Simulated scan of single mutants.
Amino acid sequence: MYAFVPAALFLALFGVSVRADRRRFRNAVYLGLTFIFASIGLLTLVPDLPHGLGGIIVAMVFLVPALGTVALGVFLIGNGLTMVRKEGRRPANLLSFMAGVGIFALISFVLTLGNQGSQRWDAVVGGVVFLAGYVSFLFLCFLAYAYLYGRIKVRGDVDYVVMLGSGLIGGDRVPPLLASRLRKGMEIHDAQIARGGRVPLLLTSGGKGADEKVAEARAMADWLIAQGVPQDHVRLEDRSRTTQENLGFSREIMLAGDPGYRCVVVTNNFHAFRAAMTARKAGVNGQVLGSPTAKYFWPSATIREFVAVFWEHKIVNLGICGAIVALTATLAVNAG
């Protein structure tokens, strides 16, 4: 049972870290390491298990991920084609398609060059697989923990419901993606009132873009009021241009209104975990909840969010990737 000690250690670290703050990316990494070491622990039990059960464990650890990778590649390519058909051929809409193609390109690379009988090529293939494995590990950690984080519920009273802005249609109309956030904010607002708690203020956050006629916060507030929200329940933060500014400027307003405030921030579900990380850095006292997003839009948006999170930790991630490349180059040269 000693083989499960590392998994237990990382599970304990995960629990302590989540209890301290749910909004840290390291929580996702601890969770991923827990699963990896638990899988290794299961493999050490295989020789002592009945043949059928041992085979099931080996299949779970190796075969299921392999088949899952192929299935994921097919799904991403199909989703990419759907994105292009529904949203156009902008680079951001091609992310899932390119990721799916990348998966099959990597498989082809390994199968083609891994059978050359050359130590140099073996070193190169090993390095590429290790590099892809590292990025894939972080992505799966992000995906799993973002899903768990998205299960957070509002508990107790909140003073503010902050709704993050996005681009407007025609410069002054709320698009469906933003309307989803506003409806979620209204649900929280109404639920708080229904349970007899304090009446939270709805704080719309978003400045005026160069191609917009009004500030996003103004358009959002008008949408809420048109839906029946009392005007005195709405506040505006209309200076921000980025998520970081959304949260920073909103924090200033909330602190001015109540230094001991507690809030909930609303964005779309694919953006919730990264927004939560930004909220922590901005010193916002509250968790982030996600509103529904069209299913076909979610994969590309999630990949985009992961790329942003990866880059936010670029010193560590690029350092590790650089070390893998350097080690691969050294092994390839020495294999000469």
Rank of each mutant, 00 (worst) to 15 (best):
F137K: 00
D159R: 03
G133A: 05
G52N: 11
R235A: 14
L331M: 13
A256N: 12
I169C: 04
F139S: 02
A226N: 14
L182W: 09
A294E: 10
L42M: 14
D211S: 13
A272Y: 04
R19D: 03
R239N: 15
K213T: 13
E212F: 06
L95H: 04
N269W: 06
Q227S: 13
S240G: 09
Y2C: 07
A210Q: 12
V174P: 08
T243E: 01
G150S: 12
I320S: 03
G185N: 14
G283Y: 08
T328S: 13
F249M: 10
Y149E: 04
K86I: 12
R26M: 08
L140P: 03
V154F: 05
F139Q: 02
A59W: 04
A105C: 11
V125C: 06
L148R: 08
G15T: 06
V16D: 08
F14K: 02
E312K: 06
A92E: 14
G156C: 00
G127Q: 07
I169A: 10
R19P: 02
A132W: 11
F310W: 09
G248R: 03
G126I: 05
T82K: 13
R89A: 15
R183N: 15
V16H: 11
A256P: 07
R22M: 06
I152H: 13
V58C: 05
F270N: 05
V129F: 03
V288Q: 00
G286I: 00
L182A: 08
I169R: 07
G171A: 03
F97K: 07
K153C: 07
P200C: 09
Y296T: 06
T34Y: 15
A335G: 11
M98S: 12
G170P: 14
G207F: 06
T243H: 02
A38F: 15
L113G: 14
T302H: 05
A28E: 04
I320V: 13
F62A: 01
M98R: 11
N334L: 15
R155M: 01
A194T: 08
F273N: 01
I169T: 10
G206H: 04
L63N: 02
L201H: 11
Y160E: 00
L13S: 09
R274K: 03
F109T: 01
G283T: 12
T302G: 07
S118R: 15
L201C: 07
F14Y: 15
V74A: 14
I225N: 04
D157K: 02
A282N: 03
T204H: 02
A335S: 15
E87G: 08
V288G: 00
G41N: 11
F142N: 10
R274W: 05
A279E: 01
L13F: 14
D157M: 03
Y2R: 14
